[in-house]
């Protein structure tokens, strides 16, 4: 699924994420700083070896939540462009599962807005990861208990 407008681009896809395409989209003469965060599959957590992550997603809602969070970022910082993409299904070690990018006139706002988007995405967007370990065990990862509504 995808929603692309002049200044916002939100993506959910099973194929590998294209960081170059994200950077190209974020480039604008109105910005002086672009911040890109890329989350990748970590092979080792302590002494547990992950062979892959598998992502489940409520796609229609995830896309709407991405748009809502981007709207909030645009109210708080002078954001010129926003890019948010999440990969679904199987993501092998070292490959990207999430890409968040922000372009703003000055770098401090880009860092802050990007940090806000990835941190809030992890609490709000209806996406779940399952760890598949080298010993054959699997485990659905649960984030911290969410705020009550």
């Amino acid at each position: 699924m995808e929603k692309k407008e002049n200044r916002h681009w939100f993506l959910l896809q099973h194929e590998p994420l294209d960081v170059g395409a994200a950077f190209a989209f974020l480039q604008t003469p109105r910005a002086g700083g672009i911040d890109l965060f890329v989350g990748t599959t970590r092979q080792w957590t302590g002494d547990k070896e992950t062979t892959r992550l598998e992502y489940d997603c409520y796609e229609a809602m995830a896309l709407k939540e991405m748009e809502r969070l981007a709207g909030e970022a645009c109210e708080r910082w002078p954001v010129e462009r926003v890019f948010i993409a999440h990969r679904l299904g199987v993501v092998p070690p070292a490959e990207a599962s999430v890409v968040v990018g922000v372009a703003t006139p000055h770098r401090a706002d880009a860092f802050e807005a990007c940090r806000f988007l990835i941190d809030t995405l992890k609490q709000q967007i209806p996406i779940w990861k399952r760890e598949v370990y080298a010993d054959g065990e699997t485990e659905w990862v649960e984030g911290p208990a969410p705020p009550r509504i």
């Binding site: 992502y55 999430v98 992890k122 209806p126 984030g143």
Partner: peptide, 10 residues
């Protein structure tokens, strides 16, 4: 209606 357990994207 969707039942949303604690999410873990990213």
């Amino acid at each position: 209606v969707a039942l949303i357990t604690p999410v873990s994207g990213g």
